[in-house]
Simulated scan of single mutants.
Amino acid sequence: MYWDSTIIILIPAIIFSLIAQLMVKSAFSKYSKERNSRGLTGADAARAILDSNGLTNVRIERISGSLTDHFDPRANVIRLSDDVYGSATVAAVGVAAHEAGHAVQYATGYAPIKLRNAIIPVTRFGSSLSTPLVLLGIIFSWDFLITAGILLFCAVVLFQAVTLPVEFDASGRAIRSLRSAHFLEDDELNDAKKVLTAAAMTYVAAMVSALLSLVRLLVISGRRRR
């Protein structure tokens, strides 16, 4: 009961996350039905943006699934989902341009993305070990384990905090590139913004979830020490 009672702290984050997921799926679905006036596919848009930034070495591949689009810096490849790669829709072009924005971030040494990469190893440990460490600390009355678990989870919060500017910047680069190259008409550009804004809300929700999870660990720790 002691542990379970703190679950209530996470309820706002769970609700926010569900709403954010519904928003992005709804926006993507809506604007995936809107064909862009130039007939550009997602792959076309990404390739053009990459080439205009001198990133001819970055490959573009098709990947299965929906909203599975991402840039893999280790393989130097943008992977676009079936709904984006060969689709000439406003949503497809917006999403593809966003992933091209990530590739440009890496190429230009964008500081937040460097920081995010640097803390990824600690974040992986933090996300999987923080709660078990706190639980073990409570069970065996070892305060140092509780402290270690909380500190590890702070890395997760930092990762989510750094992810926000990375994602917003990639979307900003995408919209600027689409506007300057006249890939989309003004009304289409506004619709692409709606898709990217909805997608950004999922990262905001992840940040809120991380913060409330940290609050939960702190509450558990405070109760234990009292």
Rank of each mutant, 00 (worst) to 15 (best):
F125W: 13
S81E: 08
V24P: 02
I9W: 10
R124Y: 14
E185A: 15
G42Q: 04
R74I: 13
R62L: 12
A210C: 08
D51L: 11
L129W: 09
V93I: 06
F144T: 13
E34F: 11
I146L: 10
S130Q: 06
A174V: 05
Y2R: 13
M201W: 13
L189H: 05
L196F: 03
P12F: 06
S213H: 12
A20Y: 02
E185G: 12
S221K: 12
G101C: 03
M207A: 15
I11N: 05
L178F: 02
L18M: 12
K33Q: 15
S171W: 00
A155Y: 00
I139G: 02
R79N: 08
Y2V: 07
A97N: 05
T197Q: 14
I9Y: 06
E34L: 12
F125M: 09
S177M: 08
R62V: 12
L158D: 03
L152S: 06
S87Y: 10
L145R: 08
A192M: 00
A20S: 10
P73K: 07
L129E: 02
A92D: 03
N36C: 09
R116S: 06
T147V: 15
Y110A: 09
D4V: 15
F153V: 07
A27F: 00
S17C: 01
V84D: 11
I78F: 02
V219F: 08
E34H: 11
F125K: 11
R47M: 10
I8W: 15
A46F: 03
A161F: 07
A205P: 03
S26E: 13
T131G: 00
A91M: 03
